[in-house]
């Protein structure tokens, strides 16, 4: 590297930089204030973790509640957790449940 190269590098370092005009930070902050903030945009990761934890606790509580009465309703555990009615031969062939409109017009 020659002396000329070093001088050129120094020149670029010393004279290459520029600045924005005065009040740049004010202009940025005006734009930041104009940014739309929806509730979902304002959620941070810790907020989301708290929300997810609460949702999980609620889901587990609902599942336990559903399971607690499953034996009286002849439901399997899975049906109880998912909140499904027990599947029986009667429920399968129940014409009113299959075609409510048709059964109404027949009556």
């Amino acid at each position: 590297m020659t002396e000329h190269d070093l001088q050129l590098e120094q020149l670029l370092r010393d004279k290459g930089r520029s600045n924005f005009g005065p009040g740049f930070a004010d202009r940025v902050m005006r734009r930041v204030e104009e940014e739309p903030v929806g509730w979902i945009d304002s959620l941070t990761l810790p907020d989301f973790v708290r929300f997810a934890a609460a949702a999980l606790v609620l889901a587990v509580a609902l599942a336990v509640f559903s399971l607690s009465g499953s034996s009286e309703r002849s439901q399997t555990a899975l049906e109880a957790v998912l909140g499904l009615d027990p599947v029986t031969a009667t429920s399968i062939y129940d014409a009113q449940a299959l075609m409510p409109a048709a059964s109404e017009s027949a009556s």
Partner: peptide
């Protein structure tokens, strides 16, 4: 706090963008 970040780094951003 964000404004402080802007003021701290506007020189670096200016050098890049104006360059």
């Amino acid at each position: 706090a964000f404004r402080e970040i802007v003021e701290t780094y506007e020189g670096a951003v200016a050098a890049t963008v104006i360059g």
